[in-house]
Design a protein around this nucleic acid. Structure first.
Lengths: 226, 226
DNA sequence: CCAAAAGTGTTCAGTTTACACCCATGA
DNA sequence: TCATGGGTGTAAACTGAACACTTTTGG
């Protein structure tokens, strides 16, 4: 890199990722074994230092691939954590991201990957986490709960096509509440969060459900609740 | 600092600050002259690299003091900007903050400070800005407009004690809309955003107005609109 | 024909909006 | 007494919440 700015006297930057998924209606996130002896018997979020010529989102997707063996996912910047003592090994400021893996991808993933040094824990968790990762996870869960009410971010936790019942179950899992089926359906259609694909989910042992898709693939604001 | 992490091959971190104030009902932000020849005839946000032992918020308050000659202000983290080419001199990731200066402090400030190399521009601005600062400012204005509806962040733009008319004018300036006086007053009291101090603003040439204060000095969520 | 999930409207309560006049003070 | 901004209530429209039965399919 060019070196008009000093090197040693300044803080360096990392990304850490809260990778969310749903497993049987329970919100979970991926944790890896920390590579620092201080933090043995704890779990840590996937993360890495950002290279000198690398964008933040590029670094996030690199970590997803190299450390979590996951494909490119929907990501969303969460916040930046920069307490001077957050990493005892040196001054590292962490830009935290959320990433979203839907349940069907997750099912494939857990079949393929057999590493011992990782775990999907339900969040928020009371297990001891390394660094300031408990704070990052807590912030991420709060942000997800908030954003699900005014954006289409839930699409990260659903496949391309899904039933309205499935969509509702995702909202209920994230918010931890039960919702009324009729009110929920009316609302998501009214605000054009999703649209009917015309397809049906057949092969179940009961009435086939209409399959829906999110109206926008980009993250946008869509006012649903509060 | 300890040096378990490499030095040259990683990105370093800066803070940039969008310092908001209101002047006669117009939302403005502070800009300084950039110190890079490429950006002459442009304006830039106050900012600096973060030192190796310095917290992010500490760095922000240092920039406020050293570069803008301002006292400690209410600040709020905005987002982090890390496109690889955002700074042509080297890899710098910027954590952007918002800061808030109320109109009375601003009036004092502009009397005391007579530097040529700075300007309060109304925002959003169409003037050319250095680096990616146009994006940062646009993001900041959008965030402020959003947050004013569900937090008590407006307190940064008001003195300790203020009239309800003054409070309403701040909301109207930020949102760019006119509001109904009775509905506004009912709402801010109903949600306990502010409380009556029992004091009156005397010395005007008409009926003395009751003085109010924000119920919480901390930034908290308070649902007002939307 | 039975079990299981899909699909669909209406009523009531609470909230938001629109709107106009009297009050306290200083000049 | 007049000009100026401070202060207050009510009715109508809208939005959100509660609630139960019929339909379609596979077994």
């Amino acid at each position: 890199m060019s070196a008009q700015y000093g090197r040693n006297e300044h803080a360096v930057i990392a990304v850490d990722i809260v990778i969310f998924t749903l497993e049987k209606g329970v919100l979970k996130a991926l944790f890896l074994e920390p590579n620092k002896p201080e933090y043995k018997n704890m779990w840590a979020l996937p993360g890495a230092l950002v290279h000198s010529e690398e964008g933040l989102e590029t670094a996030v997707q690199r970590v997803l691939q190299e450390k979590a063996h996951l494909p490119k996912l929907l990501i969303d910047q969460l916040a930046t954590f920069g307490e001077p003592q957050r990493d005892p090994y040196g001054r590292v400021v962490s830009v935290a991201y959320m990433a979203f893996l839907h349940e069907e991808e997750y099912a494939q993933y857990v079949q393929q990957i057999h590493e011992h040094k990782q775990s999907w824990l339900s969040v928020p968790t009371t297990r001891p986490l390394a660094y300031d990762h408990a704070l990052i996870v807590k912030t991420a869960v709060a942000r997800l709960r908030s954003k699900v009410g005014y954006t289409n971010i839930a699409q990260g936790l659903l496949p391309k096509h899904f039933t309205l019942t499935h969509l509702q179950s995702v909202y209920e899992a994230i918010l931890g509440i039960q919702m009324d089926k009729r009110n929920f359906r009316r609302k998501v259609l009214e605000v054009k969060l999703v649209e009917d694909t015309g397809k049906k989910l057949t092969g179940g042992k009961n009435r086939p459900a209409a399959l829906f898709a999110f109206s926008s693939k980009k993250l946008i604001e869509v006012s649903l609740f509060g």
